[in-house]
């Protein structure tokens, strides 16, 4: 059943199923994303969480911050845990062996939603093979990547999501290096090419866009991938109160474009139509420099010898925005 959320006031009637006094940093985006995802539905939710900030801070023995069914699993297999829950649920439903309380909800049209949360380390690098496998098998679940572009839990090592020029503990900036050398990989397209029916990129600062996409993802049958921008106060090194502002700058400068890819499939799983929609267009595209300037992890790029990296950034972002617009126009 789709929860009706017309505006923010209506959304604020939701009762949180994620509890306070967890040990996440002040101003962490992870919490905001988890809240918005869980509040997007009134149906029961089963959550699988890979190792990462979210897991170690919300389940410190002997405490739990989850009011939903929650599974903690290794760094590499959040997708498999969610896929297994989904497969088990479907078998139990077919055989009529669901617990009475769940059966009652299913009869009311409130099917349990299965969500996997993982950080970018558990998605882009370590969890990729299990994620790819689960998407290829086509289980019915949603995978939310909390993308803070660094291994924040273990002290800020680079991941394959870290963008070029960022200073991390394993790619430090200094007199020799300008920081991370590699470009960020485009996970949304990779997951869309698995043939997933719905793939989207979201930012917590655009809450309505996020909630709409999550609801759309819950409605379709099959694996759904959501890539969520998660500003990290500790590793992006901005002040805790600037979390929403930094996220907004990322969206407005098109560094983090908000778009979705819908693959329509027939009963054999053959994709007959792919469509890319840009769901948010900045009224005035701001220069990438402003986004970079808001985060001290890019501070060294403003030195004269590193200025060329900023130009490179702008070029890459413009090219990507152009690519997305062309794809939307062509309807592919």
């Amino acid at each position: 059943m789709v929860k009706k959320i017309k505006n923010l006031k209506e959304f604020s009637l939701s009762n949180d199923r994620f509890e306070g006094a967890n040990l996440m940093c002040p101003g962490c985006s992870h919490n905001i994303i988890v809240r918005e995802v869980l509040n997007a539905t009134n149906d029961p939710v089963i959550v699988a969480t890979a190792t990462g900030c979210l897991e170690v801070c919300t389940a410190v023995y002997p405490k739990t911050s989850w009011d939903v069914s929650w599974i903690h699993i290794g760094f590499e297999n959040a997708a498999v845990a969610a896929a297994t829950v989904s497969a088990a649920y479907e078998v139990m439903k077919r055989k009529g062996k669901l617990p009475p309380a769940t059966q009652k909800m299913v009869d009311e049209g409130r099917e349990p939603k299965i969500v996997a949360f993982a950080g970018d380390g558990g998605t882009y690098d370590i969890g990729f093979q299990s994620l790819s496998g689960a998407f290829e098998r086509g289980h019915n679940f949603m995978y939310v990547c909390l993308d803070n572009e660094v291994y924040a839990n273990t002290g800020g090592q680079r991941s394959s999501s870290t963008p070029i020029g960022a200073s991390t503990t394993t790619s430090p900036a200094g007199s020799v290096s300008y920081g991370e050398k590699m470009q960020k990989k485009s996970m949304v397209e990779i997951m869309a090419d698995h043939g997933a029916p719905y793939v989207a990129q979201v930012s917590p600062s655009k809450w309505k866009d996020l909630v709409k996409k999550v609801q759309k993802g819950f409605e379709v049958y099959g694996p759904v991938y959501i890539n969520a921008q998660s500003a990290c106060t500790t590793e992006w090194k901005h002040a805790p109160e600037d979390t929403i502002e930094v996220s907004d700058l990322g969206v407005e400068s098109c560094v983090w474009p908000l778009y979705e890819i819908i693959n329509e499939r027939d009963e054999h799983g053959i994709i007959y139509s792919t469509k890319l929609n840009i769901t948010y267009r900045p009224k005035k595209k701001i220069p990438v420099e402003e986004y970079l300037a808001a985060q001290p992890r890019f501070r060294h790029l403003f030195k004269p010898e590193n200025r060329h990296i900023i130009d490179l950034w702008q070029k890459a972002v413009d090219a990507r925005w152009e690519y997305l617009q062309r794809r939307e126009e062509a309807g592919v």
Partner: peptide
């Protein structure tokens, strides 16, 4: 009562 603080609070600390 715009509820911006409610939706963006990371710690579920805004009572609405």
């Amino acid at each position: 009562d715009c509820q911006f603080c409610w939706v963006f609070c990371p710690d579920m600390s805004i009572l609405s």
